[in-house]
C-alpha cells in the first residue's frame, strides 16, 4: 500500500485543469461526425501515442473522453473526430474554426507501436472505431518502411457514414496499403462490398506469426471480429482492442470506467486481448 510519505509534498496541482486550445480547422464529415484540428498554446506537441485519448471540455457544458485521431508523427497540431451522441458532443458540433475548447491529457495506454514495428499490421475498424485507428494508420504510413503489410478493414452501417473519404480513396490507390471497405446496407450508388465487417476476414491471407491486429468498433462488434480472427488462427496475444467506457476523469480516480478490476482510462483504452479475456465485463 502506498502511504502519504511516499510522495513529495506539496502534490502537483492541475490534475483537472484543462488547457484552453484553439480549433484551427473544422469540417463536418457526416451528419453525425465532425472533424477538428486543434492547436495547443504556442503550437506545442500533444505528445501522445496512437490510441490515447484526451478529455475535451466546453466551459459551462462539461468534459468527455475523445480519441486522438492524428498521428504523433504529424506535429504542431492534433486532430479529433467527434460523433454527436451526448450532451457535450452536441454542443461541440456547434463549434467551429476560431472557437476554444479545453484539453486535458493525453491519457491512458495507446497502441504499443514498438510491438507493431517490423510486423504485418491488420487494422479492423467498425463505425467510429476508425477514429483512434487512424492515428495508428497515419503513424505507419509516415514510417512505412518500418512496418510490414498494412491491411485495413473498415465497415460502417451505410455509405453515408464513411469517414475521411479523401483518405479512403488515397488508401485504395496506394500499392503499399491493402484497404477493404464494406457497408451493412448499400444504396444505389454503392458498388463495393455489402455485409458486416467480419465478412472481410475469411478471405485474408495472413502470415500468422508475423501479424498484429488492432480492432476497434462498437461493443457488439468485438465478439464477432475476435471469433473470425480466431478461426483464422491468429494468436490472441497478437490482437489489440481499444475499448470505450465512461472515462470521466481520465486519471484513474472517478471509477466510472472500471472493467472488473481494471481502469479503462489507465490500463487501456488499448488492451492486449489476452489481458482482458479473463475479464467478464470487458467484451
Amino acid at each position: 500500500m502506498k502511504h502519504l510519505h511516499d510522495i513529495t509534498l506539496p502534490a502537483e496541482r492541475g490534475l483537472y485543469l484543462p488547457t484552453m486550445c484553439k480549433i484551427v480547422e473544422a469540417k463536418e464529415l457526416t451528419k453525425l461526425e465532425k472533424w477538428y484540428r486543434v492547436e495547443l498554446p504556442g503550437g506545442q506537441d500533444l505528445g501522445h501515442t496512437p490510441g490515447q485519448f484526451v478529455e475535451v471540455s466546453v466551459l459551462g457544458v462539461g468534459e468527455a473522453p475523445i480519441s486522438v485521431s492524428s498521428s504523433p508523427t504529424r506535429q504542431g497540431s492534433f486532430e479529433l473526430c467527434i460523433r454527436k451522441v451526448g450532451m457535450l458532443t452536441s454542443v461541440l458540433r456547434t463549434l467551429d474554426t476560431g472557437d476554444t475548447i479545453g484539453i486535458r491529457g493525453p491519457f491512458g495506454h495507446g497502441f504499443n507501436v514498438n510491438e507493431f514495428r517490423g510486423k504485418d499490421v491488420l487494422i479492423v475498424g467498425g463505425g467510429i472505431g476508425i477514429v483512434p485507428l487512424r492515428s495508428l494508420i497515419h503513424y505507419i504510413l509516415d514510417r512505412r518502411a518500418e512496418f510490414g503489410r498494412l491491411i485495413i478493414l473498415y465497415g460502417t452501417k451505410s455509405p453515408a457514414e464513411l469517414l475521411y473519404r479523401e483518405e479512403l480513396a488515397e488508401w485504395t490507390a496506394r500499392d503499399d496499403v491493402e484497404f477493404h471497405v464494406t457497408v451493412d446496407h448499400g444504396n444505389a450508388d454503392w458498388t463495393g462490398n455489402v455485409g458486416v465487417i467480419t465478412t472481410l476476414i475469411p478471405a485474408l491471407q495472413l502470415d500468422l506469426p508475423n501479424t498484429i491486429a488492432a480492432v476497434t468498433g462498437p461493443p457488439v462488434m468485438y465478439k464477432f471480429v475476435l471469433m473470425a480472427l480466431k478461426s483464422k488462427r491468429l494468436p490472441d496475444e497478437q490482437v489489440f482492442v481499444s475499448l470505450e467506457r465512461r472515462m470521466k476523469c481520465g486519471v484513474g480516480k472517478c471509477g466510472h470506467c472500471q472493467i472488473n478490476g481494471k481502469y479503462c482510462c489507465q490500463d487501456g483504452p488499448v488492451f492486449r486481448y489476452t489481458d482482458i479475456k479473463p475479464l467478464e465485463e470487458a467484451l
Binding site: 500500500m1 502506498k2 502519504l4 510522495i7 509534498l9 506539496p10 502534490a11 484513474g252 480516480k253
Partner: peptide
C-alpha cells in the same frame, strides 16, 4: 490509509492530498 493509497497511486490527487 486505504484512501491514501487510492489517491496517491497513479496520478496523485492534489485536492485530497
Amino acid at each position: 490509509l486505504r484512501l491514501d493509497h487510492n489517491m496517491i497511486e497513479g496520478h496523485p490527487e492534489p485536492n485530497y492530498i
